[in-house]
């Protein structure tokens, strides 16, 4: 039998991911309820390079089941390369990336958009398991410390990105600003259209001259 991957390895990856996602969903009851309301949805994520398909089934109880093999008809099938999926995952605007990327979508896109919105709005109560394990006071204090660390980390990343962008554009002058670049592309496009129109006009005149026998 030709196999591109080991089903057990994929099963292990999916089992770990499924457990982590469902653990997070258990701490976000609103998101879990919204997922459960979607009904029996099966998403097929078909990666063409490397060749592997993962199925995500939304269970009525608001959990996700990740599978390497599923015979149910997929409600939505998304097909693309690993690079496309990584770009989608890293994107600030997934909806725009989905439309503009090479990803191919077959089937009903509504559940996909709904799931994406639920994940974006998902508010996980990370404090609950800490309080459960460490008690009210220690759990809350640890959660506060972790929140402060995450907030600092997030601010640091945002600040670093802004400063890096400023350096590339202003200090190093390594790249033109985005607006300038877009203006340049618009001008190139406008010149292209004008050349097309000129070419059509020349051909029309040529046909007229031929008809007149000049």
């Amino acid at each position: 039998m030709n196999q591109t991957h080991d089903p057990a390895a994929l099963s292990g990856l999916l089992a770990g991911l499924e457990a982590a996602i469902n653990r997070a969903l258990a701490l976000a009851p609103a998101a879990s309820r919204e997922l459960g309301d979607l009904g029996n949805v099966v998403l097929a994520i078909e990666c063409t390079a490397p060749e592997v398909t993962v199925f995500i089934r939304v269970a009525p109880q608001g959990t996700l089941q990740l599978m390497g093999y599923c015979e149910d008809k997929a409600t939505t099938r998304v097909r693309g390369t690993l690079e496309d999926f990584i770009a989608l995952a890293m994107s600030d605007d997934p909806a725009a990336t989905l439309i503009n990327s090479e990803l191919e979508i077959v089937g009903n896109t509504a559940p996909l958009v709904a799931i994406q919105q639920i994940v974006t709005r998902m508010d996980v109560d990370w404090e609950a398991p800490l309080v459960e394990k460490l008690g009210d006071v220690a759990g809350h204090q640890l959660a506060e410390a972790m929140r402060a660390t995450f907030a600092w980390g997030s601010n640091a990343v945002t600040s670093l990105r802004r400063q890096l962008s400023e350096y590339i554009l202003e200090e190093g002058r390594l790249s033109p600003p985005k607006a300038e670049l877009e203006h340049f592309f618009e001008q190139v496009q406008a010149v292209g259209h004008r050349v097309d129109r000129l070419q059509s006009r020349i051909e029309r005149l040529k046909r007229r001259l031929d008809k007149a026998g000049v």
Partner: peptide, 15 residues
């Protein structure tokens, strides 16, 4: 612990 993954895939194949 891998026997759990072998069984998991078998159950998926059973449909």
């Amino acid at each position: 612990g891998i026997h759990r993954l072998w069984k998991r895939f078998t159950i998926e194949l059973s449909a």
